[in-house]
Design a protein around this nucleic acid. Sequence first.
DNA 1: ATATGGTTTAACCGTTTGGTCAAATATAAG
DNA 2: CTTATATTTGACCAAACGGTTAAACCATAT
Lengths: 209, 209
Amino acid sequence: MTPTDKHTESKIFDAATEIFEEKGLAAARMQDIADRAKINKALLHYYFRSKEKLFMAVFDKLADKVFKKFSGIFEEDMPFEEKIRYFFKEHISFLQKNPRLPMFILAEISRNPRLLEKFLSKINISNIKTKISSDVSANLPEEAIPHLMVSIVSLSVFPIAAKPILKGILEQAGIEYNQFIKERMQVAPDFIISALKQYNVESKNNEKQ
Amino acid sequence: MTPTDKHTESKIFDAATEIFEEKGLAAARMQDIADRAKINKALLHYYFRSKEKLFMAVFDKLADKVFKKFSGIFEEDMPFEEKIRYFFKEHISFLQKNPRLPMFILAEISRNPRLLEKFLSKINISNIKTKISSDVSANLPEEAIPHLMVSIVSLSVFPIAAKPILKGILEQAGIEYNQFIKERMQVAPDFIISALKQYNVESKNNEKQ
DNA sequence: ATATGGTTTAACCGTTTGGTCAAATATAAG
DNA sequence: CTTATATTTGACCAAACGGTTAAACCATAT
């Protein structure tokens, strides 16, 4: 392979990523991808045999990107509170750089369940669960861990995934979206940590009874 | 045809709703809609002039449905804590009956910003904000209200909107999705109320300083 | 310089798509 | 029954789509 090979292939791949993220698989047009990559449409089929193959390559890469960012964060060695704050800071700033990513993944999976397998195969959920578990097991019963995880992800992903609609609503109330999201990096972990502290207060009160 | 048969227009509308919710605008086929409604494809254009017009009619109806359910809940006259619990119970059970609705609205809006205007025109956000504000203004500063609202919506909508992927992950961990969502009706409001209580504790401590 | 093999293109192809239309059928009114 | 109007259909169309092909192009090794 010559150096120009990689060049073209990655130009196509980058263009395809943009178009697929913007429009989704069904609405994306091979001609649009070729135009954005500034190459002939036939080249798409030369490097990636079909639209579906090209899409799969893009989806795979993006799913990998999400997964690596997600799982890496909980590897860090720090106290749980700090880890929560670190997660939101890292995760929200990552999603801000890739604002279309979460909606793309969610929407495509919900319309083609076969993509789910591809996505799940990357995640070792019990691994992450064990990590969180060891962090908070002193404070939280085992059954509550998945709920905590879902709450954390909901609070970090949703405001980015729903960006267009949330931005619209906020602006109706005179609030700027980007500023709001910046605040979220502080507000959301505060919210979670407060909830957990309160939980501890309540369980200690129950123990005393 | 028996007189109990639905009128053609509503048969078309119902079929279109199903297909559009399942596949989205771009992937939906007029022929599929006609097939599901068990009528000739030309009839679609007789009652609704074009695919876009039909889609707009469906989107408008569904956006209305979401909006009415959302805004109605905070009209109720009850203490704030109880209202939060009532919101999650009502909202999650509504979304469970219409599991594709949130992802449909979010995905279509994110791909066609013109739909956002249609959606926003239905919502009077400052109205809702005022209601919540009067509920919690004694306990929470004005600036925190939008964040609380976004947190509430994130925690209620995300686990339903991301159903396929969340279901997959949960099952990998041996947890059944429907049971998990049922638990959420209790866990999520607990979480929010705990966070707010803790917030009050902290602000009272700050006042003492 | 030319033969070789990977790269790029314009032109083309078969199918699918949203949409149209004239004819057929059902419904209701005179 | 006859006429007028509304509904339904099969056949059809032009455009758009993903995909193919043969030829042109270009770098490099001999």
